[in-house]
Design a binder for these strands. Structure first.
Lengths: 252, 252
DNA sequence: GCGCAAATTTGGTCATACCAAAGGCGATGC
DNA sequence: GCATCGCCTTTGGTATGACCAAATTTGCGC
């Protein structure tokens, strides 16, 4: 299985050991770029398995050490999905991969309430802009989607588990309105990162009902094309939720 | 040099070879968690050098292969800064590290104009919220900082290179107002990611002057505590800039 | 065909070796 | 006494080869 190797790194024409020397120190990086190119070019299709390491060894003329390092680096970049014992799976880069890559560090930033609050405030800021945008720009089908999400939310008031899911789904619709694929991904990231603390929040049908009513306020303001009211309702909603989350942190 | 090892992974008490087996397959991950813990606990201070690989080998009782993989993974998480031939430097996790981790994938998303537009639209959305926030909440010293940035911007009109820097700096002040460390980091990330395309944008003192005037409009609206005007000025400013950037992409 | 066991692949880890660059050390010269 | 240069040691980057256990494939028997 011989592949056509792009010429920006003259990999094909160089013999084994001189590899590192020529590229100016970085054998693995060169392999990374090679495989990267094959992924974006589609030569390695999304969802396909990466060839076995021993094949890559003689495809690129490097040692297994280097191949493995390259694979690890590609996995950390989100271009490969590598479960412990299985063959790595090719993943074309997407927004979710980018945010997942950030996730590893974000975990550390959320160890104290300050970090959580910062992230949550950022979310409030962004989501405030989103409800304004929705109030001004939402199309009929966006409003309809919001209405459906709101109805599902109301129907789940007595089921806190389900209520949480429909709560998230309602907010998700707001991120869909601008039809910018980055935004839904950011919402998924926010949700995933904050979920750990969110689930600790005390829940009850009464609380759920209050939250539903806030959602209804937001929806009504959007329907009325009133961005200020929509933003105010959202801010009030999210800030109230923070008070509950804050209580889950130990200390004064 | 024997260190106290946290107990959530019983590393200290297990003998070498059974390592991978007990942890359920993942020697490197266990080492990652160990070193991670030492970094957040401060046992490995920020800016310090990581011990030599050969030391880590017998500190953790694993092979060099595993140590190197662990180091690589920590570097990709932003906890270590590892230049090719040098000793890795410890970096306490920060927002910038999180965004830098995402940077690897973001590069791929910005290969076509659609990806750039999506990112840029996201920035417009967020920055719109920021100018609104500034108009409503900015303190005297925030306004003063904006005024200084604006003056520097005006003074650089005839120097396109310097103008770009002061342009970025002016916008940066907007991200500082909420005093949320995430936001300045996001601005740095936006700037770094979009810089590649931005620098291709044709520049001239005339264009600089127009941009400066837009900045002045934004500043005036903030000073007048008029969020709607501020947001409108910003949107107009950024959308106009996009028209220029868009031209740098090959046409259909 | 189909399921199950044996044989083969293949990823994870270890051990060892070599090279070249980085870093430390001592001699040299001012 | 201090700065500089060069040698020696340390240390990271890579290559090899081996072994194990899990994953996958093969193929046998039903």
């Amino acid at each position: 299985m011989s592949i056509v190797i792009p010429d920006f790194v003259g990999l094909a024409c160089m013999t084994d050991e001189t590899f590192a020397l020529r590229t100016g120190l970085r054998a693995a990086d060169a392999v990374v770029r090679e495989i990267e190119a094959r992924i974006v070019s589609g030569s390695l299709a999304d969802g396909a398995h990466l060839p076995p390491e021993r094949d890559l060894i003689d495809t690129y003329g490097v040692s297994r050490t280097v191949v493995r390092e390259a694979v690890a680096r590609l996995a950390s970049k989100g271009l490969l999905e590598s479960r412990p014992r299985y063959r790595p799976v090719v993943r074309r880069p997407g927004v979710d991969a980018a945010l997942a890559a950030a996730g590893g560090v974000v975990g550390h930033l959320l160890r104290d309430s300050v970090g959580v609050k910062n992230l949550y405030d950022t979310r409030i800021l962004l989501e405030g802009a989103l409800v304004r945008h929705a109030a001004l720009q939402a199309r009929k089908d966006d409003i309809a989607a919001l209405a459906r999400a709101l109805a599902a939310n109301e129907a789940a008031i007595d089921n806190s588990e389900l209520f949480y899911a429909t709560d998230v789904a309602f907010h998700a619709v707001l991120y869909d309105v601008p039809r910018n694929p980055i935004l839904p991904a950011v919402h998924r990231a926010f949700t995933a990162w904050l979920a750990e603390h969110w689930v600790k929040m005390p829940r009850s049908p009464e609380r759920n009902r209050v939250n539903f009513l806030r959602h209804r306020d937001i929806f009504a303001a959007i329907q009325d094309r009133d961005p200020d009211a929509a933003e105010a309702a959202l801010a009030s909603h999210l800030n109230a939720a923070w008070e509950y989350v804050r209580g889950t942190f130990e200390g004064p």
